[in-house]
Structure formats: C-alpha cells, structure tokens
Design a protein around this nucleic acid. Sequence first.
DNA 1: GCCGTTTTCGGCCCGACTGTTTTCAGTCG
Length: 567
Amino acid sequence: MENKEIAEILYNVADFLEMEDNPFRPKAYRRAAHTIEFLTENISEVREEGNLEKLPGIGKNIALKIEEILDTGSLQYLEELRKEIPVDFDALMSVEGLGPKKIKHLYEELGIKNLEDLENQAKRHKIRRLKGMGEKSEKNILENIEFAKKHGTRKLLGYVLPIAQELKTQLDELDITDDVKIAGSIRRRKETIGDIDILVITSHPQKVMDFFITMDMVVDVINKGPSKSTVRLNEGIECDLRVFKANVFGAALMYFTGSKETNVELRRIAIKNNLKLNEYGLFKGKNRIAGESEEELFHKLGMNYIEPELRENRGEIEAATEKKLPELVGYHDIKGDLQIHTKWSDGSHSLEEMVQSASQIGYEYIALTDHAGSLKIAGSMDEKRIKEQMKEINKINNGMDDITILNGVEVNIGSDGKLDVENDLLKDLDIVVASIHSGFRQNEDKITKRLITAMANENVNIIGHPTSRKIQERQAYDLDLDKIFKVSRETNTFLEVNSQPNRLDLSDVNIKKSLEHGCKLVINTDAHSQDQLKYINLGIATARRGWATKMDIINTLSLKKLEKLFN
DNA sequence: GCCGTTTTCGGCCCGACTGTTTTCAGTCG
C-alpha cells in the first residue's frame, strides 16, 4: 500500500473528527497524514524497522492504526465514523461558507448528506429555520452550490499563473499601490491552485479595495473588509487580496505565502523562543523585532532563508535551522530544452520556427525530438523521414552559430519494453527520449520491467514523463520507483521532469526521492508549439520543489559537458 | 491525539470577516 493511500485514510479520519468538539484530535490526525504523505521512505519499511513512533506527529495510537491499515487495507475506526455521520464530506466542504460544524448540524437537523439534499432543503427554505442560520445563509448556500458544482476542483498552476500575473499587472499600474506580490500556493509553485492570493503594499487601503472589487475580471464579491477581500473571477477561480503597510511587508508576505503547515510550524518555533509571529511581524512582548523582510524574519527565528517552493513543512524548517538547505536550481540555469516537437510529427510549428524561438530564449542548445516509430500516435516519423529530418537539421546547424540543434527522436516503449525504431538508426542520433504512451494498466512488475528494458538500451538517453500521470486526469501507473532510480543511475539514463502543466512528471515528491538515490534529471518542456517553450519555468519550479540543485539537472551543463555525459 | 532543554499534564498559530447574535461561533487561509 502506498504512503499516499494511507495518508488519505488518516485525512478522512481528520475530516470526520472536525465535526466533533475537540479541535486537537483532527489536527493530530492531519499532522500524521502530512508526515506520511511526504515521507520519502516507504511507510511499511519504517514499520518493519519498528520506527513508526519516531515519525513526527505519530504516537502510539496512530501507529496502531497505521499497522491496521497496512495489515487489512482499511481502518475500522474510519468505517465507524462514516456510519455515524454518513455525509459526502468533500462535496459539502467545497461549498464556500460550509465547514465541518455546519455540515454536522445540517445532517442532524435535516438529514442532509450531499449537495443534492442541500440544494433541495435550501430551495424549500428549511435551512433558514435552523439555529445559527438565517435567510442570508440559505441564499449564500444556493449561490455557492452552483459555483462548487461548476468549479469544484483545484486548477492547474499553468492555467492560473497567467491570470494572477494579469491581476498583478493591473494593480501595479495604480498610483496608490507601492508593491504587489502574488503569494499563496502560486508563489510556492504548487502543481494545482485553489485560489489566487494577492498582497498589496499601500497607504490607501480603502481605495485599493474599492478598485479591486470592481475590476473587470471580478464577477462576484464574497466578502469585503478594510484589509481583506475575497472575490470570484470570470475564470472560475477565487482571489483573496490583503493590504498591508510597507513596514510589515516581510511578515505579511511570509504569512500569505504559507503553506499553512509551514506557518503553524514557524509560529510554534516563535512561541518556543518566547516570541509571537503573525502577519504583522515577529514580536517580543509588544516590541516588533522583525517584519520588514522575510530574510530577517527567518534569521531572527534562528534559520536560513527558505525559498517559497520549499515551504511545505516537509523538513525544510529543520534543514534551514541546521543550515543544510540545498542551493536550488535557478530559473536561468537551463542551457537547453531536450524534448521539443515540430510539424515533422505532431507539433504545430516548423523546425525553423521552433529553433528561432529557442534561440530567442537564449539557449545554447536544444534537441528536436519528434515522435518516431511504427506507432500511429502523433504522426510518428518512419525510418525514411527520420533520415530526411537529420539532413534538414544538419543544414540548419551549419547556418547557425549561437545555438546547436541536437538531432533526436522520442520513441515509444512497447508493452514488452522494446522500442519501435531499430538500434542501427538510433545510434546515429544525438539523443533518444523513450516514453510510454499506452498500456498503462499493466501491473507494477510489468511496467517496471518495461522501463528497465528501455533504460538498458544503450541508445536511450532520457525516459520521458516517467510515470505518465496526468494531473486531475490519470493516475501514475504502478511503478517500483526505487528500482527505476537504481537502474537510472547504473545505466546513465536520465529521468525527465516534464514541464507540461498537466504532467509535471516526475512530481516534486518523486524528484526528491530520486535525488536521494543519487539520480540526475533533465528538465524539458515537451513543447508542441513555440509558446509552450515557456513552460520550462513550471518544470524548473517543480524541480525546486523537489529540492533539486543545479548539479542535479543535466541540462544546466554546457553543450560540451552534456555531450560527454551522453557518450 | 501528540508532545516535552521550564511540563508525563496541559497545552496545542493567529487574525480577518460574516452572519446571527447582543458577545461570539464558524469559516477561511
């Protein structure tokens, strides 16, 4: 059983416990779930070593529950909680303004279990009669159900980021704003985003709020106060804006960037040192001892600065305290993109156009890796076309002096691990990316063997999108990642961090795990058009979230060093 | 339910905003 599945069960327990009076029990379960979710070792191994209770937030009781889940695949305690209050908790929680207490109240008084029940009872005006509810609550529920149904899930970072940047631009243009920052999970570059958080420094808070809630992109105002407002945007996403004065900028940014878990941990550390941390600063008694910059706040808390991408309370606070944080790969460190498609297969721009865009970015080299092989996917090139494209690329290379084009292909890995292009041809290419595009349902053993067979082929340099997950669409296939990482090292085959917004594969957690195995990675866009080349920033962000340094990423190397690595 | 370099019991992050209230609980991040 995967760590993630066990964490999921404990999160579910926490959800149900939220409906009860003691607020600390759900917190305890949530903390334990978070620990397991981001553990890089397998939880069953930790258990075999008898170390469950050494993990943060896991004590005797929860350790027993984890053992039960590992042994039986389920948790009796959760089944009992579900029986007691049999509600579709996630669905009801997605309605703005409904929380655990109200959900419980609605179930006990009106038997509401799901969105359908909720809508029915609201329409029949049953809700306004409940204690603590009124006409307005009922009206809000009806409005918010609509939104929850339409835009229930989180959205891809690649989709939300440009929207947030547009908001920032418009707010930046105002005379009354001194600074505007995108904070929250976008600043941390999390792969999916729940809402947009914007922080404004101003000495005219009221005017900024008035402007904000009447912006063209705003379709609905959820709440509005003197320092904080929440709106809905026409793109189906919510946006929070908070205003602060310049002297608390660092504390505000730190608080508003999160993550929530990181904030809680930092505030706990503050308390331990007889200090108090909030969005207005770090306080000793009534005196503010830091607050203008994040750097000084971290410093006063006794630790090094933590990059936003790392702030998930996954060990970065301990590392920062011991001054052992890695120096993350930078957004300008990538010297070339090693998976790019053109019109020769399923791309929408010509070879020349893609080269021109890459050159404008300032890359030292790129690899053109159109689909190749017998497979009909994506207009794959056959042997004859591959040879023709080679000649074209040679011609272009001879006419360019600022950028070198590596001649590559992306080949498909068959269900038996074999590639559908002959080795005789592959060995003449500069670079071969091998990826799985079908047959995802094979069991763990088979898929793992399939990838290992491909990696053992000495012509293969890179495994493209190694787990083939698609965020919110398709789970990663079952894979023995420990084995894959080991073979990756042994065969000098590099695993890709694919930058497509819905892939980001390897994921942050798997990147961290691979680095602990000593793997080296490559960050590619898999671009199918000129504008997709900019997705490289999403890949870099994901690598940073996985604690990757420049040394861990092969396409930060000069061309000379890279070619040496491939031979 | 977890945890401890003041504690094995008594804490557990902190503040803004709303709606339904007459001082606050619930929600949100």
